[in-house]
Simulated assay, not measured.
Amino acid sequence: MEDVSDPPFRYVCKHNGADLMYSEFISSEGLIRDAIKSRQKLDFFEYERPFGIQIFGGDEEAMAMSARIVDTVQPDLVDINFGCPVKKVVCKGAGAAVLKDVDTMTRLSAAVVKSTSLPVTVKTRLGWDDESKNIEEVALRLQDAGIQALTIHGRTRAQLYKGEADWTLIAKVKENPRIHIPIFGNGDIDSPEKARLYRDRYGVDGLMIGRAAIGYPWIFNEIKHYLRTGEHLPPPGIEQRIEAIRSHLLRSVEWKGPVVGILEMRRHYTNYLKGFPHIKEFRNQLVQKKTVEEIGEVLQQVQARYAGFVPERAVASFSQSQFEDCAY
């Protein structure tokens, strides 16, 4: 997720049970132009392994060259994003736009496979729109091109993030006897119960979680514990939430510097503190403070105010405009 799944965010997810994590998606054109922002997204820490770097693009040569660049930093896999629905990506013939041309998608995938020694995986959607749900053909073509796993988001590009994800076509791909690569499902997994239901009902090899982890990294351990035991972990109280905010903030400042690190943390406070009554006053203070020390003082007040209070499980929420800048 661009501008979300950076190293500070990944740190709190890994600390709370994420098994496999990915970089923000990286423009292949940016990588081969040596764009600073694109190059920075290649950085990761050893504790993050297994770790995948995700690239996107619509040009065969650029995708091949970017795969070779990714190879040099030695992640555990290369992932291709054929699922991002936002205009700034689609208008360049990348992301979900490639769903309209399966031949191009296949060529791009094969080019990446041939250009790297790493396993190559793909994330995509059901199709471009309701009239062109071609994921069953896509899965076979991508498998033939050499990819080693496929993640399917249960919506079309036309749906963006609206409506319910449809996992029935994901199940059809998994049940196809010609498919032998792992199939992972994505879309609407926001609780341990839903994780078990979808895993069992649709038979996928694994589950990918995106939006539900924003402001709630505990979801990974909650799901894993529930799948093992059938029991729920206690929900995080204010102490755990403040600890997660502090960890995220400190990593953000270390990674991006005090100005950008503090500025970019502002988008996360709302989701970490979602479900607490009358939290707006504190949230407004948090987004106005300019130093770690000032933010720490506000967090102390929040912890004292809500000591012992445990909110109901709340899923991160965003407007559509926010998703234009938070694509995956």
Rank of each mutant, 00 (worst) to 15 (best):
A149I: 08
L160R: 14
Q143M: 10
Q143T: 09
A165G: 04
A165P: 01
D166E: 03
R141S: 14
A171W: 05
A139V: 11
I152E: 11
L150P: 00
R157H: 10
H153S: 13
W167R: 01
A139H: 08
T151G: 10
L140T: 13
A158E: 15
A145H: 10
W167H: 10
Q159T: 03
L140C: 09
A139T: 14
W167N: 03
G154V: 03
L160T: 08
K162H: 08
G146Y: 11
L150C: 06
Y161F: 11
R155K: 15
R157E: 06
D144Y: 05
I170Y: 05
G146S: 08
G146N: 08
A145R: 14
G163H: 06
R141V: 09
H153A: 10
D166N: 03
A149H: 12
K162Q: 07
E164Q: 06
D166T: 03
T156H: 02
Q148N: 09
A158R: 15
A145V: 07
I147Q: 07
D166L: 05
A149F: 15
L142S: 02
T168G: 04
L150H: 00
A145F: 09
A149C: 12
A158D: 10
Q148F: 10
L150K: 00
A149R: 13
L150V: 04
G163D: 05
Q159R: 12
G163N: 07
A149W: 07
W167C: 01
E164K: 14
Q159K: 14
G163W: 05
A165C: 05
G154H: 02
G146M: 10
K162R: 11
L140Q: 13
G154T: 09
W167D: 03
A158I: 08
R141N: 14
T151K: 10
I147T: 12
L169V: 02
K162I: 01
T156P: 01
G146A: 12
G163P: 04
I147S: 15
W167M: 03
W167K: 02
L140A: 15
D166K: 06
G163V: 06
D166H: 02
L160C: 12
K162D: 08
D166W: 02
D144F: 06
Q143D: 13
I152R: 11
R155W: 05
G146L: 09
I170N: 01
T156K: 00
A145C: 07
R141H: 13
Q148A: 12
H153V: 11
I147F: 11
L142C: 04
Q148Y: 06
L160W: 13
L150W: 04
